[in-house]
Design a protein around this nucleic acid. Sequence first.
DNA 1: GATTTAACTGAACGTGCGTTCAAATCAATC
DNA 2: GATTGATTTGAACGCACGTTCAGTTAAATC
Lengths: 180, 180
Amino acid sequence: MRAVALNLFARHGYAAVSMRQIAGEVGVQAGALYNYTPDKQSLLFDLMKDHMDQLLGAWSEHPAAPNAVAALEAFTRFHIRFHAARPEAVFIAYMELRNLSPENFLVIEKLRQGYEAEIETLLRQGISEGVFDTPDPKIATRALIAMLNGVNTWFREEGRLSLPDVEDLYWSMVRKSVAV
Amino acid sequence: MRAVALNLFARHGYAAVSMRQIAGEVGVQAGALYNYTPDKQSLLFDLMKDHMDQLLGAWSEHPAAPNAVAALEAFTRFHIRFHAARPEAVFIAYMELRNLSPENFLVIEKLRQGYEAEIETLLRQGISEGVFDTPDPKIATRALIAMLNGVNTWFREEGRLSLPDVEDLYWSMVRKSVAV
DNA sequence: GATTTAACTGAACGTGCGTTCAAATCAATC
DNA sequence: GATTGATTTGAACGCACGTTCAGTTAAATC
C-alpha cells in the first residue's frame, strides 16, 4: 500500500489521489486500507517521515572525511545518489509539505533543518580550515542543496549522462562555488 | 478573481482549492466566476501563462551586456529580483505543472525551455570568450536556475538579508561555480 | 423613467470524496 | 472439521466538488 500511495502521490499529488484509487491499484476495496493506516493524512506523513529518517540515517552512517573538501565532495555525491535513487519519495517530500497537518509539518521541517545544519557545519569547518570562502554559510548551504535537488527534475536513468557523470559535473560546480 | 485564485492556489494548491473558496474570497457566488473563466483549469493555465510571458518579456527587455560575465551577473540579479517580487506566481509555476492538462503543460513547458535556452546561450558565449569553464552548459544552466530558484523557498522581505545582499551572495557563488 | 445589457444569485445536476461498519470471507489453530 | 481471529467486502454516511442555468438584480444607455 505504501508503495502504491508513494507512486500515486508523486504522479498526481496528494490532494488529487483518492483512497479508492490507491485501493484500486493495490487490488482491494477502499475500506481495507484502514487496517493499515488510520487515515489519509497519516499515510502521507509516514511516507515523508520514513524518507527523512532514511536520508538522515544514511548520511550519518557515512564515514568521516579527512578534511572539509573531501567531506563536501562526499556530501555532494551522496546527496545526488541518494535522491536519484528514490525520485518519488523526494518529489513528495518537497511538494506535499503544505498538505501536512501543522503538527506533522513541524516534525518534517525539523528533520529537514537537521540535514541542512549538518551541511552548514561542514561549510563552516572548511572556512576555518581556510579552504572555503563564502560570506554566509547558511545561505550557501541552502543554495547548494537547492542546486543539487535540481538534479531530480531532469535526471533519468536512461538519459545522456550517467550518475557518476552527473556527480562529477555538480561536484565541480559545488567545489568552485565555495572555493577561496 | 485572478489575484485571489493566485493567492489561494499558492497557499493550498490547485487541487485543494475549490471554486466556492475563490468565489467566497472575491465576495461572490461560485457561479459568477464562470463569467470570467470557462473553467478551473483555464484559470490555472492563464495564471501560469501570464507569469511565463512576463518572465520572458521582462528578460528580453533587458539591455545587452558588454560581455558574458556582465551578462551572467545581470541575469543572476534579474532572476532573483523578478522571482522575489512575485513569490506566489513562482510557486504555482513550479508546483502546479502536473495539474495542467497535457496540452496546457506543453505550452508552459515550451516557454520554460525558452528561458533556459537563453541562459545556456549566455554560458556558451562565456565559454567561447574564455571566461567561463563548465563541461556541460545545459546541465550548468539547470544547476544555476535551480540554485537561484531556491531563494524563493526562504527569502522574506522582512528577513535578515536585503534583496541586494541576496543578489551579491548568489552572484558570488554563480560567478565562481562557472569560473575558469 | 423605460429599455437594454451585463453581472450575479441560488438552487440544482451528477459525481466523487474520506471514512465507518456489519457482514462475509479467509487462514491458522486445535 | 470446528473454532477462532484477522482481513476484506460492499454498502452507506454526510459532505463537497465543478459546472449549469433560469431567474433576479444592478448599471448603462437612450
